[in-house]
Amino acid sequence: MEQILRVSDYLLENAEKVIDQVIEEVKTNIKFELTEEQLNLAKQQNVEFLRMMARSFPATDEEAAKELLEWAEKQGETTSQNMEQFSQSIEPLAKNRLIYSTHISQIAIDMGIDAERIVRIMNRFNYLLDVAMVHTIKSFEKHQAQKLKERQKQINELSAPIVPVQEGVAILPFIGIVDYERMEYILNYVIPKIPKMGTDHLIIDFSGILTIDSEIAQHIFTLHNVLQLLGINLYFTGMRPNITMAIVQGNIDFSDFHTYGSVIQALAVIEKTK
């Protein structure tokens, strides 16, 4: 154990120097250009990992892995912020692992560590590297999913804006693809805003979409009923024949719906009711 602790102390004291040497050699395996910021981040991450590994030498594999979890969570989040695809990071892993392990084993050889203990050191290094990679990937995927969810929310917001056009009158244009998720967003986040805007008449314009399915048609029926309960007069415009067919195929009675060919026609009708 004394020999292993000597290597541990050396790595803790000289982590930055060792990683500088490793990174210089590793850069030749990377096919994409790294910015100065990315290089500094890589150095910081690897210095932290090397020190964690060195501190783990007296511990069991299970005890050593515990410290890695929090570190890997942070690395996954950071990688998610800087890269869209984790494959950029892991593609050169095999060669980089060899470079990394060669440096560490050479340090141990130069310190006169015997072969058995060098093997133990390298087994610990490879074990921790595998654990770190697995948990970093999981963290990366989690944070990527959160980013996608936030982007989808932003898309939904941009695709379902409430546009006031007159006092007490607003338009909700449907733009792009109207799917289940977007209808859920409209029902849960857009509709509650309408009464707060002092809107008495809402025009939902379908001219910006090509088609809907019967499930979405059912949601539109729900939307109609909710707005009626809120005391808001609802008008549908720009409904193509295929959209109307989807409503019919959904066995929805839309005889009470106020439908018009264009927003201008609906506005003219609203003007007469005032």
Results as ranks from 00 to 15, higher is better:
111 M>S: 03
134 V>R: 13
53 M>G: 14
144 Q>M: 09
186 I>T: 00
101 S>A: 13
24 E>A: 15
26 V>P: 06
170 A>T: 06
168 G>E: 10
271 E>S: 15
139 S>W: 04
238 G>V: 02
177 I>F: 03
95 K>N: 13
252 I>Q: 01
199 T>C: 10
7 V>Y: 03
75 Q>D: 06
53 M>R: 12
105 S>D: 15
191 I>K: 00
116 E>Y: 09
115 A>C: 09
130 D>I: 01
189 Y>D: 15
3 Q>C: 06
129 L>A: 12
203 I>P: 09
47 V>F: 00
250 G>V: 00
85 Q>H: 14
158 L>H: 01
226 V>M: 12
97 R>N: 10
32 F>Y: 14
51 R>H: 08
141 E>S: 08
93 L>D: 15
126 N>D: 15
85 Q>M: 12
89 S>W: 15
250 G>W: 02
232 I>F: 05
146 Q>N: 12
127 Y>Q: 11
137 I>P: 08
202 L>E: 10
41 L>A: 12
212 I>C: 04
129 L>Q: 12
230 L>S: 08
9 D>L: 05
179 D>A: 04
146 Q>D: 05
180 Y>T: 15
128 L>T: 06
135 H>D: 08
203 I>M: 01
77 E>R: 11
214 S>N: 07
47 V>Y: 02
96 N>A: 10
163 V>Y: 01
271 E>A: 13
177 I>E: 13
16 E>N: 08
204 I>S: 07
156 N>Q: 10
60 T>H: 03
88 Q>V: 07
138 K>A: 06
174 F>W: 06
105 S>Q: 14
